[in-house]
Design a protein around this nucleic acid. Sequence first.
DNA 1: CGCTCCCTTGATCAAGGTCAAGCTTGGTGG
DNA 2: CCACCAAGCTTGACCTTGATCAAGGGAGCG
Lengths: 261, 261
Amino acid sequence: MNTIKNLHVHSTAAPNSLKAAVGSSLNCYTRKHCVACKLGDIHLSQFERLGKRRVLRKGEQLFRQGDTFQSLFVVQSGSVKSSVVGDDGEEQITGFHFPGDMLSVDGMDSGQQTYSAEALETTSICEFAFRDFERISESMPDLKSQFFKVMGKELSREKKRMLVLGRMRAEQRLATFILDTSRELRSRGQANDSLTFSMTRQDIANYLGLAVETVSRLLSQFAATDLVRVQRRSLEVLDRPNLENLAQGFQPTAQLIARSA
Amino acid sequence: MNTIKNLHVHSTAAPNSLKAAVGSSLNCYTRKHCVACKLGDIHLSQFERLGKRRVLRKGEQLFRQGDTFQSLFVVQSGSVKSSVVGDDGEEQITGFHFPGDMLSVDGMDSGQQTYSAEALETTSICEFAFRDFERISESMPDLKSQFFKVMGKELSREKKRMLVLGRMRAEQRLATFILDTSRELRSRGQANDSLTFSMTRQDIANYLGLAVETVSRLLSQFAATDLVRVQRRSLEVLDRPNLENLAQGFQPTAQLIARSA
DNA sequence: CGCTCCCTTGATCAAGGTCAAGCTTGGTGG
DNA sequence: CCACCAAGCTTGACCTTGATCAAGGGAGCG
């Protein structure tokens, strides 16, 4: 939940240009997910030759921390995890990314990627040379403004994540994760209360700053109290209100206490 | 450690214009801290009427989470803490900000402030209307590019913070905090190994996701092992190498083990 | 002078990490 | 097509870290 979200490149004025550039498989689920769709009737055909399609298999890396920054990436299908490693080699997953999310903007400052990105499943990506982006956006100042908004959104998202990592107990973290992921996937057109994880429990645990065992135990507990139904990588939210209570750190209802005791 | 850093507005071509706009007390410590100094000989006088000076006393808020976003702020002197609150009212301090740091960029997306900012001491701030910024930057595309870099830097900083909050043990967190803060203040011209905190222990603890008592105990312990010398709000780094070891999670040296046992 | 806020230190406790073991499942090769 | 293997997941037992509770000390301010 920790990416440049909502960077769907959607063309209104020129239906085929951008979409074609980005690749045919990209669907623009909603208007508000678009960077380009707010640009009005600006001529978009300049983008036509920009996008380069790329397919990664599970486990393949899109880029690594330290790589030279030269491209912006947009996830078209599949999913990606991003992570940073500390001096000691400790790895922290910083986000999971779904179709429409943009990757690698951090690098603009240093000229280096500040994190690594790896496909969680077979994933297709659209790559734009940053050089081209800069050149073209000079004649389209609104595009840059739109980017500010996107980056601002990302910044505020990361701040919320600090709340999760800094203040929440394990239960809250997991409940929050489930709700956020559910919302995230729902906004991309998936079914209402059921979702399928592309990441392992280990990934989830790392992302939440917990041990795998804790995640596993809590999922079992959530299932035992009928908050969710879990089977392997697929999860169904059964009791959203109580899950939200948990996420906010409220005491579980009496019913829950009884069951989980 | 979690702001838009290094937004010193420094004029090269027109020595008095920007600097005057920002306020006379702002010093541009180093070249690389500047947004504007990379703009070359672009005419900067347009900024002249932009900045509005504002002074806050300790405890006063610059803005609150949820406020309408309409300005960008640059810290000129003093210091500021920023924080987010969750649905449950839990507060998480997301960063401390020093002269040259920019505040409130997150709001560009939603039109609302996504966090609150409060002065830690008497602090002077320069306020720019975002509207003006946008208008002017249309004729100065480099200014926007510079902003991308600044925001990219901020994003990568927040990612590092996830590593702190998600993976590090208390000792590591505090050691990291001391080193980061020291570096931060050093780059602003303060003495090499001594620093003075403007924030309370409670603030530090909250920022690091710890309890006050833990911070207090660890500081005492660091002092007992001659890593630092502490007196009230002032701290002197005595043994940087071993502090760095601690920050990276390495076992303390034999000497340290003996002493702290 | 005394009050309040901040900080420190000690004692106890619980959340969650670690270690260990076994189970499930999907992929691979025979 | 089946058997086996490795990777991932679950569950249990135990232990460590750091939170919580409690009490007291100092410094700045009215």
